[in-house]
Structure formats: C-alpha cells, structure tokens
C-alpha cells in the first residue's frame, strides 16, 4: 500500500514537473510559433502567389522564383550584399579578435571593455544617423578632419563607389565591440598555465596566439562567424536610415530589395520568394560553417 502510494506520488510529481517545464518554455514557444514559424510558412505560401496587398492572391506556382532567376536587379542586390559581407566579416572578426587579445594580454581593465562595447549599446538606427551626419560630404566632421591632414574630400555615403564600404564601416564600428566581448569571454576559458608552459618552451606572443589561442577559441569563433554572417546578409536598418539603397542602387542589398518589392511595389509574392530563397541560402551557409569549424566540439574541458 505504502509502496503504491509512493509510485503514485512519484508519477504525479513527474507530471507536475512536466507541466511546470511546459509553462516555462511556453512564452518562448508562443513567440517562436507566432513570429518565426508561422510567418516563414506564410511567406512560403505567399511566394507561390501574385498577392499585391490589394487584390485577392492567385496561385502562380513557381513563377516568382523563375522571375527572380531572370531578374538582373535581384542579382545586383545579391552581389551588393555579398560585397558588404566581404567588407564586414573579415574586418569585424579580425578587429574584434585583436581588441579581445590585447585587452586580455595587456590591460584587463573593465573601463576599457566598457568603451569597446559602448557602440553596440546604440541602436543601428541611431548609429546610422550619427554617422550620416559625420560622413556628410559637405558638412561632415570626417571630411573636415581629412582636409585638416591634407587629404581630399570623400563622398562617403553619397558616392556610389564608397557608399557600401561606408555602410559596412558603420556596422563594423557598431558590432566589433560585441565580437570583441565574445572573444574576450572565450579567452577567459583558456587556462593561463598553457601560456606559461608555452613561454618556457620559447614561444613568442605570435606563436602562442597561433598555436594556443586560435585553436582553443574555435567554438567561439564559429559562433561569432555564424551569427555575424547571418546578420550581415540581413543588413537593412543602416541602409534604411542612410542611403535607402542609393546612390544609383549601389547599396540596394537583398533585404532592401525585398522591402522595396513588398512595400513600395506591392509585389508581396515576389518579395516572399526572394525571402524564402535568402532563408534557404543562410541555412545552408550556417550548416556548412558549423560543419567546417566543428562548432559543437571544444578541446577545453
């Protein structure tokens, strides 16, 4: 009898725990379903229609995708996005790593880390606005400084040749702090004895970085690369605030092109098709990166 009661209570407790667990994940699950999964499924559905926001949608099959493949504006936006990614990722990663290693090996100052992370605390929109003023070709401070050191005026955001690089520079300025902080946290997990042992073996700072820091930082590196790459492909807000895709479409990145199609040209079906394509490409890139960097596996205990 006693044993039976205990079994019942144990089962009851397990059920109560399960209910509590479900309650804890419920808010996140509801958010995920309502704001991620459902829109994704809907986007896929819409991508198969000619919905224009005004008229009832007709199913057009894969017509939107076929159109995308033959659309030079789409390929242009893909190319523009890729240049942005190529500016952004290597510089941001290298700078973040450099800042993290320097602040770890030389100056472990909280104040310094606070300064490094500060730009990230600003929203992209604010960062974009501030830099738009600073980079203004006529009134901007940046050109005033350049003139001061005897360099010619630059067009920055208003020059088709420099606009994308300028957008990338703004993003790098804002995001490097976060990257550096993530790397810094990763560095703290590497035992200091390893560096002492390496010093005794005659390793200099560079070979310690190459032979110890970098390999042991691999999981963090993978995380940083995956998140920043996905983030870079989705560059939007800085462009929306500063260049709106211009000048001469030189900053019309994919997300901006999707936005234009959806809310300016009212081609919801076409915009959704590009979105679904971008989504698929990003998933593939992420999987590939995780695989290449063995992101799920650390050498540290």
């Amino acid at each position: 009898m006693a044993a039976k009661t205990r079994v019942v209570t144990r089962a009851g407790r397990r059920r109560r725990e399960a209910i509590a667990g479900l309650l804890f994940v419920a808010p996140a699950t509801v958010g995920f379903l309502a704001f991620y999964l459902l829109p994704t499924v809907r986007a896929f559905q819409i991508s198969l229609t000619d919905w224009s926001l005004l008229r009832a949608p007709n199913v057009v099959g894969l017509a939107n995708y076929r159109r995308m493949i033959g659309d030079p504006a789409f390929w242009h936006s893909a190319w523009v996005t890729l240049t942005y990614v190529l500016y952004n990722i290597p510089l941001q990663t290298a700078l973040g790593l450099l800042l993290a290693v320097l602040s770890d090996r030389l100056a472990r100052s909280v104040a310094l880390r606070a300064v490094i992370i500060a730009p990230y605390l600003m929203s992209n929109v604010v960062a974009g606005l501030v830099w738009m003023l600073l980079l203004d070709p006529i009134l901007g401070l940046t050109n005033a400084w350049l003139a001061h050191v005897g360099l010619p005026r630059q067009g920055f955001l208003s020059s088709p040749d420099e606009a994308m690089a300028s957008v990338a520079a703004i993003s790098i300025w804002r995001n490097t702090g976060l990257t550096a902080l993530l790397f810094y946290a990763g560095l703290q997990a590497i035992p200091k004895h390893l560096y002492e042992a390496a010093r005794l073996e005659g390793a200099d700072e560079w070979s310690m970085f190459r032979r110890i820091t970098l390999p042991l930082l691999r999981p963090v590196l993978a995380f940083v690369l995956v998140t920043s790459l996905v983030g870079s492909f989705q560059v939007f807000d800085v462009i929306a605030v500063t260049t709106e895709g211009g000048p001469a479409q030189s900053t019309r990145a994919i997300l901006w092109y999707i936005y234009e199609n959806a809310f300016k040209f009212h081609k919801m079906g076409y915009a959704s098709a590009i979105s679904v394509t971008l989504f698929s490409v990003l998933i593939l890139v992420t999987l590939l990166q995780m695989r290449l960097l063995r992101a799920d596996h650390s050498d540290l205990d």
Binding site: P191, E196, A197, L216
Partner: peptide
C-alpha cells in the same frame, strides 16, 4: 617545468 595542472595543450 611540470605544472600541477599538467598544462598540456588540450588540442
């Protein structure tokens, strides 16, 4: 030097 933690390079 041989360290208490061995300080072997884990990778």
């Amino acid at each position: 030097m041989v360290f208490q933690s061995y300080a072997l390079f884990p990778h």
